[in-house]
Amino acid sequence: MTDTYKDSLTAPNETPEEREYEFRAHIGAIWTGGRLAIGMATFLYASEAFAYFYLRTSNNSNLWRLPGQLAPLYYGWTVLICLLLMAGLANYGHRRLKKGYTNDFLVAGWTGVAAGLIALFFQIWELVVLPFYPGSSGYASTFIGFVVMNIMTIVFATYWMETTTTRAMRLRKELGGTNPELSSAYPARSFRANVASMSYYMGFVAIVSIMFFLMFYVA
């Protein structure tokens, strides 16, 4: 293979205009990427919902759901409330950040992370206290599938929230000054775009949690 690096390692000779152009592409990528992540997660959850309704309507061997079979309701509530809290805090933090209250963003971020961790704990622990066997009915199976999927979503959402929050703290250290998160420096702009995408994604998580809560714990 020819060595493509020989002369180009040092400098791409970017002009400021080019840098700005690429940077805008980068911001656009965060915007598109966040929405696309929602699209992917939608298909993921849609296939789970499809399984739920498919098994429910086909009710094979009359075993869609045993009489009285219900996942632990209080665990469900806890996870739901934590996730809603997390989504709310993400949105709140984002709005406060836009208004310039960066400390509020940090507090909201860390609280949201804590809520996410609590949700994660209860979501996992719920599997331990299940009052039914995984294979006892279609409902039981789809519930287990949903829990596993939800664990992945919570991990991802909490991770995203945590990294944006730590990123805000790093920005303060790196850039210095008052409210460096709101400056026009590249890292700060990229950070704000990221927060926007994150809070959007959290909105999606909230909607999905409510929908699936209704499906599994209410309906």
Binding site: N62, L63, L66, G68, Q69, L70, P131, F132
Partner: peptide, 15 residues
Amino acid sequence: PYSPYDVYGAKQPAS
């Protein structure tokens, strides 16, 4: 008649 209770035992909650 198929009774899941026979298969899965008493761990089922009462309906």
